[in-house]
């Protein structure tokens, strides 16, 4: 088991290494470099004439005159050793400062979304598989089609519309205005929880639709395996048979796809954040891409991907714990 964990951990590091290279390439992609944009931002409209030399000196100051691989190494070294993701010009401070609180909020939102997804999809998926052609089963089919067809941002718009026209409230934001800038307190936390619901529903929407289908499909497969009848033949009650035997295995694909779910949620984060006005990483990512504030964008991209890779690692281990076949044979 220890070897298994170590193996997966190494795999995680290797993947992150390649991801960091890709992120760096994306950061380098936009035309012009950081010095150009820095000079443009700082001096445009001020009447100061910026010469080629000025830009050159900025370039030197940030070490942009050195070759790409050297810059990559400096960048990654700063992240790994000092948690320093480089400078952000849009906010004229370090990336770490800009990102700061948003990391926590994003994670809270992620956890809320995942909880909602699994609390809905696992029991309903199991129920629909056991009661084939019941109302839950048909409802599930409809929802799983709609889950794909109505993208999350559109659902957000619809909820926004309903909120505005029928309840005369905006459903956006993560905090009420009075708590926006307030320091953390119990009241502020409660306010956050109340605001979490709509974004969590929106983000959980398509993930739930997909997981419902997965759970039902696996459960239907497992339900007809001989070991279920064997458990019944032992004299166990029906509820116990279902929950202890096929349901136990129907959870495995959910665990193994947790990385995909997070990928999906993060993927939709920027757009949903834009519509609902959420102060988290996705919204900042979108803004920094639009502003070409590439160090911020790179940092966020790297963090989001790290969460996914890390959760893949966790799900591998949980899966091994859940399924002795993997633990004892695959390790």
């Amino acid at each position: 088991m220890l070897r298994f964990i170590l193996q997966r951990a190494i795999g995680m590091v290797v993947t992150m290494f390649f991801v960091s290279i890709m992120v760096f390439v994306i950061m380098e992609l936009p035309p012009g470099d950081y010095a150009d944009r820095y000079a443009f931002r700082k001096f445009s409209g001020t009447g100061v004439v910026v010469t080629e030399e000025d830009i050159e000196s900025i370039r030197k100051q940030f070490g942009l005159d050195r070759p790409a691989w050297e810059r990559y190494l400096t960048w990654i070294w700063g992240i790994v050793t000092r948690f320093d993701f480089g400078p952000s010009f849009a906010f004229e401070t370090s990336v770490t400062d800009v990102i700061g609180e948003r990391v926590g909020l994003t994670l809270v939102l992620l956890v809320a979304t995942l909880l909602l997804t699994y609390l809905l999809s696992i029991p309903i998926g199991i129920y629909a598989a056991v009661r084939r052609q019941s109302l839950a089963d048909y409802g599930l089919t409809v929802v799983s089609y709609l889950g794909l067809a109505i993208p999350n941002f559109m659902l957000a718009l619809i909820l926004l519309y309903i909120g505005v026209t029928y309840f005369d409230t905006t459903v956006g934001g993560l905090f009420s205005p009075e708590f926006e800038k307030a320091p953390w307190s119990w009241a502020k936390f409660r306010d956050l929880l109340a605001h979490l619901f709509v974004p969590a529903v929106v983000l959980a929407w398509s993930a739930t639709a997909l997981q419902l289908q997965t759970v039902r499909a696996t459960m239907s497969d497992e339900l007809h395996k001989p070991y279920v009848d064997a458990a019944r033949a032992r004299g166990l009650g029906e509820a116990k048979v279902i929950l202890k035997y096929p349901a136990r295995l129907a959870i495995n694909p959910v665990v193994s796809t947790i990385g995909f779910d997070i990928n999906r949620i993060f993927s939709e984060l920027p757009i949903v954040a834009l519509v609902l006005g959420l102060p988290e990483l996705g919204e900042l990512l979108l803004r920094s891409f639009l502003d070409l504030d590439m160090y911020v964008a790179g940092a966020i991209l790297l963090m989001l991907t790290f969460v996914i890779v890390f959760m893949n690692f966790v799900s591998d281990i949980v899966l091994a714990l859940l399924d002795p076949r993997i633990r004892l044979e695959g390790g």
């Binding site: 936009p30 035309p31 989001l304």
Partner: peptide, 24 residues
């Protein structure tokens, strides 16, 4: 396989965004 894994693990829309942001 490794390459596809790396591309697949990065959230899709942010990745699109990164590439689209590079359009001059």
């Amino acid at each position: 396989q490794r390459l596809t894994e790396v591309v697949r693990v990065v959230p899709v829309i942010p990745l699109y965004m990164g590439l689209a942001a590079a359009f001059p």
